[in-house]
């Protein structure tokens, strides 16, 4: 498992991003068997990557809860609309496989490449089209956005905890009024401080976001394997088959 995680982490982020960009939309269009194979393969990769991460298990559990929730919603709505149970079950299973595969794809990308690496990979891809000036700003924006997401979640959790302690009897509507205001205030301050930190570290210029990727023989071999896999998947796409 750790060898698989090390292999995936060590791959060039451009290869990982390119594969994800192709596979993501294709997951909704490919055959169910291919989607299932993708889901199983991605589950193995995510399990390997998450095993070394302190929050990995929680992320996988959160993902499963998300899938179960939406599958239940779909199944419920289908059943209410009068569909037969067999069709409801087939539809729910189809959604479960595709949604799980898609979320596992995003999770494997997030666990195997840093925010900075992904930002640089996107900037590298758009540089010929958007130009150097926009490309480094895009890299910085993406790195900040990905960096800020867990901070937002942590802030929301802290504010919910604080409210639960200070006002244990306050109702749902009061909480829904207080929490967003407090979150926005806290994040506003963090955003300002982070802007200063970025400028203070000299990261607000193009020289700080020059891509420094190195394509290795291992990347070539993995690209060939991934390419073959993607061709097999492509054969099941409705507009190619």
């Amino acid at each position: 498992m750790s060898r698989l995680a090390a292999l995936v982490r060590g791959l060039d982020p451009r290869l990982k991003l390119g594969t994800a960009l192709f596979l993501g939309p294709a997951l909704w269009l490919m055959g169910l068997v291919q989607a299932g194979v993708c889901a199983v393969a991605l589950l193995c990769i995510v399990a390997a990557l998450a095993s070394g991460q302190p929050l990995g298990g929680r992320m996988v559990r959160g993902l499963l809860v998300f899938v179960v929730f939406w599958v239940a919603v779909k199944a419920g709505l289908d059943a209410v609309s009068g569909m037969e149970w067999a069709q409801v079950a087939a539809g729910a299973g189809d959604l479960a496989v595709r949604l799980a595969a898609l979320l596992l794809l995003g999770l494997s990308l997030a666990l195997s490449a840093s925010a900075r690496a992904l930002g640089l990979a996107v900037a590298w891809a758009v540089r010929p089209v958007a130009g150097g000036e926009r490309a480094w700003k895009l890299a910085l924006s993406l790195a900040l956005m990905v960096h800020f997401l867990p901070m937002c979640l942590a802030t929301v959790a802290e504010i919910r905890q604080a409210l639960a302690r200070r006002c244990p009897r306050c109702g749902f509507f009061l909480r829904m009024t207080v929490i967003p205001q407090a979150v926005i205030r806290a994040l506003g301050q963090k955003t300002w401080n982070q802007t200063l930190a970025v400028a203070g570290r000299g990261l607000d210029g193009p020289q700080a976001w020059e891509p420094d990727f190195s394509w290795s023989g291992r990347d070539t071999r993995c690209a060939l394997v991934a390419g073959g896999f993607l061709v097999w998947i492509s054969l099941s796409l409705p507009f190619l088959s």
Binding site: S114, A115, R116, A117, A143, L144, H147, M151, K190, N193, Q194, L196, A197, V198, G200, R201, G202, L203, Q207, A208, W209
Partner: peptide, 23 residues
């Protein structure tokens, strides 16, 4: 170079290595 109080806001790298080599 200004080192601010809140370290979490200044660290954009995923690992100590990546953060030190950032930029």
């Amino acid at each position: 170079r200004l080192v601010m109080q809140d370290a979490d806001l200044q660290m954009l790298g995923a690992t100590a290595e990546e953060d030190l080599l950032l930029g």
